[in-house]
Computed example of a mutant assay.
Amino acid sequence: MAFKQRIQSFYNLIYEEQLEVASALDISRLRKICFESGCPDDDKHIRSIAWKLLLSYLPINRNEWNKCLQQKRQLYQEFIRDLIIENGNIGQSQDDHPLNTDPNSNWKNYFRENEILLQIDKDVRRLYPDISFFQQKIARKFNSSDCDILSGRMNNSAHSIDVIKDCFGMTEIRKNKVYDQNQSIDNMPADSNDGEFHWQVVARILFIYAKLNPGQGYVQGMNEIIGPIYYVFANDSKLEWRNHSEADTFWCFTNLMSEIRDIFNKHADSDRSSGIVSRMDRLVQILSKEDQELCQQINLIQGIKPHYYAFRWITLLLSQEFPLPDVLRLWDYMFSDENRFDFLLKLCCSMIIILREQLMSGDFASNMKLLQNFPDSIEITFIVARAKTIQAS
């Protein structure tokens, strides 16, 4: 009964209370009930709507939802047309051809985009290989020939150039995964007449984002940020929302990246006032305040700097440290906290403190392995509870 009441409390807040004259959703209350125990897993619509509100995609006034959604979804359709369809086929002319050395030629831009596409293609094919969702097919939402434009370019190795895997110059951003050689994700065909894979949808979103943000472009690891968002929206229990999961994911991902883009920009750390380095420094400060002895043991005595483990934790919002269901619950708490990226650091600090006994008795090698491969046996409820304690102190 308590569980059903909790689900109803979400629906009352999000929908029924909007029938009042003011029609303004109490976002503070939404944050509170999400932060208390996360979103219910059994009702897949609640998390989908809650994230759209917490990531500032939906306005708090529900009377504005239809207009906002119509405009945003239509604009995304225009991005598909302008950035993929109309620019997908390069025509040759006497002045512009594949061997043209002009850096501003259409062909040069085409080749540069193919480098981005190649990296995106490699990354999205491997999203959460332990679940089948991203390798499942769905009906195409756009004209078949239009969808094939990106697929054809990604399959055209003649126009692809290898790119650097380590974008930050610090450490590998992804854990090594073992794949079934009999079902190679890398060899999976990218185009078919009977639909497209979920990972192809994610690739399309990331490519459009990169085109619209040339100063940042696509950075390896963004696929791990967008994956859980798309998963939640594409599994919405309400068809009318699920059908627009691609456009909604694009806008929520864009809003989220606007808040965390500095951690994907190594130049932001030149003055140590922003970016990933400053956040790792902040993590050390929090740990030192909570447990100075432990902080000195791993950071000073053993020399295990946060670059070796927390870089990935912070950059990918812990999306690679836990199974997807746990990641979704962690993001409920993180998104609902007004200082959510400070709360992320509290979660990271909690993870370290929970391992205190092993870290204090372990040597450099064992502690490095422990921190880089956080134990699966530790419940996230324990991690969140300790993080809330840290935040309250």
Rank of each mutant, 00 (worst) to 15 (best):
8 Q>I: 06
11 Y>E: 11
12 N>L: 12
15 Y>A: 12
28 S>W: 05
32 K>I: 01
37 S>C: 11
39 C>R: 13
44 K>V: 05
48 S>H: 08
55 L>S: 13
62 R>E: 15
64 E>T: 02
67 K>S: 15
68 C>I: 05
69 L>A: 07
72 K>D: 02
74 Q>I: 06
75 L>H: 08
78 E>G: 05
80 I>H: 08
86 E>P: 07
88 G>F: 03
92 Q>H: 12
98 P>D: 04
105 S>A: 01
108 K>S: 01
110 Y>C: 08
118 L>N: 14
126 R>T: 01
129 P>R: 02
136 Q>T: 14
139 A>Q: 01
140 R>W: 00
146 D>N: 01
148 D>L: 03
150 L>H: 10
159 H>R: 14
162 D>Q: 04
164 I>Q: 14
173 I>W: 06
176 N>P: 13
184 S>V: 00
184 S>A: 15
184 S>C: 12
185 I>C: 06
191 D>A: 10
197 F>A: 01
202 V>K: 02
205 I>N: 03
209 Y>G: 13
222 M>D: 02
224 E>I: 07
225 I>Y: 15
229 I>F: 08
233 F>C: 06
240 E>W: 11
245 S>F: 04
246 E>K: 05
251 W>L: 09
253 F>Q: 03
262 D>G: 09
270 S>N: 13
271 D>F: 12
283 L>F: 15
284 V>C: 14
294 L>P: 13
316 L>S: 05
317 L>Y: 10
321 E>A: 08
321 E>Q: 09
333 Y>A: 03
346 K>A: 10
347 L>C: 10
348 C>F: 12
349 C>L: 05
349 C>T: 07
352 I>M: 09
361 S>T: 14
364 F>R: 06
365 A>S: 15
370 L>F: 05
388 K>E: 03
388 K>D: 07
389 T>V: 01
391 Q>K: 02
